Amino acid sequence: MERSPRVVRIDELIPADSPRLSGIDRAHVQRLATVYASLPPVLVHRPTMRVVDGMHRISAALLKGLETVEVTFFDGAEDQVFLRSVAANITNGLPLSVADRKTAAARILASHPTLSDRAVAAHVGLDAKTVAGVRTCSAAGSPLLNVRTGADGRIHPLDRTAERLHAAALLTQDPALSLRSVVEQTGLSLGTAHDVRRRLLRGEDPVPQSRQSAGAMLEAGPAKRPRPAGAPVVPGIRPGRTATSAVAGRPPVSPRSRAPMEALRKLSHDPSLRHSDQGRELMRWLHNRFLVDEAWRRRADVVPAHCVDSMAELAQHCSDAWRRFAEEMVRRRHTSAADVAEVRATQPTRR
């Protein structure tokens, strides 16, 4: 925008596409005419010579018999003219009514449907909830979009279902995976990744019910929701199914699996295991053999009928081996406890 004012003939200007439903307020024009010398320059879009802000000032100049006005130029794109006009009208001059602002919000949403509610609210001087209501009322028949452009100018996906499912799959496969690694692989924020982990530990679906409903509205068909490249399928959700359709089925992690997953996570973060080669090797071995309800149920459906007996025998063998391993751990726990008690009993009492 050109800062230094220039004098322009009034008949060279195109009237503003004003957000005011009632048009020019004659009483306000008369008030401006009495203080005309102190008024700021009119804002004009240079490429089109359309007035962006200042129609009341131009009317005051005409009332005083003037043929020229001082203007400063705005060089933005043509689709930004109305946005700038609304923003200018809510910061100075005659205030816009609530009806003016809501109508302006509806126009902005029609011309800039990807703008977020907060971004539109900043332009029209309404709160974001009011803008959201205007969007709902004016969006009938309009295509539903999955992105929003925030007030910061950055593009934010509206539906993060696919990314949440990807994160759930990663954390199910490796409960000790750091959240920062999940963020790097899925594009989620750290807070959202943390929310997915908390939901898994509670046995809940990684996608909140409200998000699932939004995802269902945004989706026109079962094959139109893309999964991130290389994203593994989440347990309990087949490729092509939506998060909403999966709600009726089993959750990604059952309540029975929460305690083992939490135990595995704590072991993976134990310094005595993490900071030794043998400890890290043990945890890799354990991760490769860790099995939750969702995993074996998913694989049980794949076993053909003629392999059921062999698979059952193999599973029983593994179960027996794990049972002996568990008995050994319990024996060591009792042995350690007995050793500690014996040491305490032999220590002299300090007086």
Rank of each mutant, 00 (worst) to 15 (best):
T192D: 14
R265A: 14
A295I: 10
T335F: 11
V234K: 03
D117R: 05
H156V: 05
P232F: 00
E2C: 10
L200N: 01
L145I: 10
Y36E: 05
V253M: 07
L291D: 11
R6W: 07
I58D: 10
A99E: 14
M49F: 08
S38A: 12
A259G: 11
M55I: 01
R199Q: 09
P239K: 00
W296Q: 12
T186V: 07
H287A: 08
L282A: 06
D117V: 02
N92C: 06
E313M: 14
R227N: 05
S245R: 13
A337T: 14
A345I: 03
N89A: 06
A223S: 10
M283G: 08
R164A: 12
Q185I: 00
T68S: 12
E294A: 14
R84N: 05
V134D: 06
V183R: 13
A60S: 06
R160D: 15
V292K: 02
S22H: 11
D301W: 09
A248M: 11
V124P: 09
R154S: 12
I90S: 07
G23C: 00
P143L: 00
V147K: 06
V302I: 13
P228D: 02
S210T: 13
S111W: 02
L264S: 02
R256I: 12
R57H: 01
A259T: 12
A315F: 10
P271W: 01
R298T: 11
D11L: 05
T242A: 10
S4R: 15
R227V: 00
V8F: 11
F290N: 08
D117T: 04
L66T: 05
L165E: 15
A193R: 11
A300M: 11
L171E: 03
E204L: 08
A321H: 05
D159Y: 00
N288H: 13
V29W: 01
Q278G: 12
R258I: 10
V330W: 13
C318F: 08
M261H: 12
R227F: 00
P251K: 02
P251W: 02
K129H: 06
R274D: 09
I10L: 09
P232L: 00
H194N: 14
L32I: 04
E281K: 15
A105K: 06
L273C: 07
V71E: 07
L83Q: 03
L282K: 00
D195M: 09
V343K: 13
V98Q: 13
G133C: 00
S210R: 15
R31I: 10
T48F: 04
A99Q: 12
Q212F: 01
A128P: 03
R332G: 06
L177C: 01
A321P: 05
R50V: 08
R46Q: 09
H334Y: 15
P222N: 02
L21M: 04
E281W: 14
R289Q: 09
A345V: 02
A246F: 09
A104Y: 06
P19Q: 03
R227G: 01
S336R: 13
L39S: 03
A214N: 14
W285E: 09
A312T: 08
L94F: 00
W322T: 14
F325V: 06
V81Q: 04
R211Q: 15
R299C: 12
R324P: 05
R199H: 09
S38T: 11
D79W: 04
T34D: 15
V69A: 03
I108E: 09
H56V: 00
D205Q: 10
A104K: 08
S142T: 13
R202K: 14
